[in-house]
Design a protein around this nucleic acid. Structure first.
Length: 155
DNA sequence: GTTCTTACA
DNA sequence: TGTAAGGA
């Protein structure tokens, strides 16, 4: 069997959140948002229960909704109005999604360069003659460029 | 026991 | 927004 890639993991083939579903009471306890509020937020279109094949009345929520509710609640506690908290949460989640996708595109594995573990960021140039490596140290990023074809020790 | 909608404080 | 009612 081939080794699983980070992207496969991120796509949910390995660490799947698809089967994480919660009832309204669970979401309420996890986030500190009352069931009354959750139903109210739904009426305003801020959150939406999962569609269920079986036409049942009881709401079920996915993991993404848990994150959304959690974010809205946090920002509300910081003083944002509900509408503003909803907007900011949506923006942050979209930004996080963009970052995640970018990193998955850029990341080519771990490689040992000069006896140090570096992120392999793939070819630097269109001609594929140089390869870019990077690592993070003390909250800033260090880059290395090496001739391509020497990335033998990828882990 | 929990969740549903509706309605009222 | 919390709570009560009355049913699922």
């Amino acid at each position: 069997m081939e080794r699983a890639t980070l992207r496969e993991a991120a796509n949910g083939k390995i660490f799947s959140t698809a089967n994480l579903i919660f009832g309204i009471g669970q979401i309420s306890k996890m986030t500190g948002v009352s069931t009354r509020q959750l139903r109210y937020w739904e009426s305003k279109g801020y959150i939406e229960p999962k569609k269920r094949a079986d036409e049942q009345a009881q709401r079920v929520y996915g993991y993404d909704t848990f994150l959304r509710v959690s974010g809205i609640k946090s920002m509300q506690d910081e003083g944002y109005t509900l509408a503003a908290a909803v907007e900011r949460t949506a923006a942050l989640m979209a930004e996080a999604d963009g970052i995640r996708n970018f990193l998955l595109d850029a990341y080519h594995g771990i490689a040992e360069v000069d006896n140090q573990d570096m992120l392999d960021l793939g070819f630097l140039d269109a001609e594929h003659t140089q390869r870019l490596y990077a690592r993070s140290k003390d909250h800033h990023v260090e880059y290395l460029v090496r001739p391509a074809g020497e990335e033998a020790t990828g882990k």
